[in-house]
């Protein structure tokens, strides 16, 4: 599903954000990427959704080498992915419904379909009652759940989450990770970047450790 071969990324000399990263994530896998701040976790995720282009190496997503496809075709790759950020990245002047349905709007989904799928996604994160509220009327935990609903509304094959619980208290973080588990059980490949070791230990799964741009498989037990 996701394969990285000898991926290197340098923003400025002499530091390497990613250093010869090799990774293979299979379909339906639940995977954590952990490591200290500045270790390259976000860069690795950004490389997967091609927000950054590696200095060297190849990244294959669903059999497509995303380094070789032209810029205007990246949208097709991103439509297979859902992305969740630490800072939620919600549109505060738009209602919850619009924030979630935006991912369907870009696909040109018919309004009826859009409403149905948005409602299903919000029900999954237990926010179906807040459909017409603005994000500013929601708590942090609820805002992150809206962001998750947006990420899953078009049934992506891959869900990427970059420090999704960084701004949340432990109980909320636990709830959010529980949601990721549910989404994963439905067949979505989930990759979560986090440095919350306690949660990793509690939820288990494959753990990859990044340190100074180098990736190691880690056994968290």
């Amino acid at each position: 599903m996701i394969e990285l071969y000898h991926v290197w990324k340098q923003y400025q000399k002499p530091l390497w954000a990613l250093s010869d990263v090799n990774l293979s994530v299979t379909r339906g896998e639940f995977c954590f990427i952990t490591g200290p701040s500045g270790s390259g976790k976000s860069t690795l995720l950004k490389a997967i959704y091609r927000e950054v282009i590696p200095t060297e190496g190849q990244i294959i997503i669903s059999g497509i080498n995303i380094q070789r496809i032209p810029d205007h075709k990246i949208c097709a790759i991103r439509r297979q992915m859902g992305i969740v950020f630490q800072d939620f990245r919600l549109l505060f002047h738009k209602r919850v419904f619009d924030n979630v349905s935006i991912a369907l709007r870009v696909l040109g989904a018919p309004p009826r379909d859009m409403k149905r799928k948005t409602f299903i996604a919000l029900r999954m994160v237990n926010l179906q009652q807040r459909l017409w509220d603005y994000p500013s009327q929601l708590s942090y935990g609820e805002q992150q759940r809206v962001a998750i609903a947006r990420a899953i509304v078009n049934n992506p094959r891959i869900l990427l989450a970059d420090e999704p619980t960084g701004n949340l208290d432990p109980d909320l973080a636990h709830e959010i990770f529980g949601l990721f588990r549910v989404i994963n059980k439905q067949g979505t490949t989930v990759i979560i970047c986090t440095h919350d070791k306690e949660l990793i230990r509690r939820f288990g799964g494959r753990v990859l450790y990044l340190h100074e741009g180098k990736l190691h498989e880690k056994d968290v037990g």
Partner: peptide, 16 residues
Amino acid sequence: KSEIEILRLVGATNTF
């Protein structure tokens, strides 16, 4: 800018 960024991340085409 933020809306455009989100649109790009959810797979909107340049034309869209």
